[in-house]
């Protein structure tokens, strides 16, 4: 039986894997929204005039970038019930992904904010716009538009990181593949297929981020 490679026997399990892929996609989409919202707030804090806000945001980013995701995940998964917050594995996973995603996307958005020309800001201030309007109508649109492509690679990392959610009993794509592997006794075929699936998924994500980036920045070349 040595060196047999027969992926055709996996055909009956494709539906099951697709369900796992849907869960991965859902978790990633929710975490993208959460991470982006958090990233915008943190990036604004890091570029704020108040030293306290800058410092708090800096510590948050520093901690979540330098501690392994699986440790953050276990901290939340085992720690939250301890203080009476009962979340499902899925909710915990999305929360952890959002927190980590927020740290990474705030870096990108911060760079986008710093790249906004000072002249534009001065013009807005001279026109007498209130601060919130400057942030909402001028700084963020420019900063976000220029950071679509780097945000795409943050999102690619988020998709890859989401495979770790299988460690807290969540049967997303990797979790379901584990079940299929132990069902079929064909771990090599299953995980090789999974590797290709993830590579294709992330390739599509970075491709569409590139297209979106070009489209949004079309008039600014």
């Amino acid at each position: 039986m040595s060196l047999t490679f027969d992926p055709t026997t996996l055909a009956p399990y494709l539906g099951f894997l697709a369900a796992g892929a849907r869960l991965t996609a859902l978790a990633c989409a929710l975490a993208l929204a959460g991470g982006l919202a958090l990233g915008i707030v943190v990036a604004l804090m890091r570029t704020a005039a108040s030293p306290l806000a800058r410092r708090a945001a800096g510590i948050y980013v520093d901690v979540f970038r330098n501690v392994p995701f699986i440790v953050q995940l276990f901290f939340l998964f085992y720690g939250l019930p301890e203080i009476g917050i009962m979340l499902s594995a899925f909710a915990t996973g999305v929360l952890a992904l959002s927190l980590a995603g927020g740290a990474f996307s705030s870096d990108v958005i911060r760079a986008g904010i710093l790249a906004v020309e000072p002249g534009v800001l001065e013009a807005a201030q001279v026109s007498g716009l209130p601060r919130l309007a400057i942030v909402r109508r001028i700084v963020l649109p420019i900063a976000l538009r220029s950071s679509v492509r780097p945000l795409g690679s943050v999102f690619v990392n988020l998709v890859l990181t989401s495979s770790i959610l299988s460690a807290i009993t969540l049967n997303e794509l990797t979790g379901s593949a584990k079940i299929v592997a132990s069902d079929t006794f064909q771990p090599f075929e299953v995980y090789a297929l999974l590797l290709l699936l993830y590579a294709m998924l992330t390739w599509l994500v970075s491709l569409s981020a590139g297209v979106l980036h070009r489209r949004l920045n079309r008039s600014h070349r």
């Binding site: 060196l3 690619v156 592997a181 006794f185 995980y191 999974l194 590797l195 390739w203």
Partner: peptide
């Protein structure tokens, strides 16, 4: 472009079966 966890599973569970 693939999760390290999947690579780890491929080598740890898959490679011994294949070889």
């Amino acid at each position: 472009n693939s999760p390290v966890l999947v690579q780890l599973f491929l080598v740890f569970f898959g490679l011994p079966v294949l070889l």
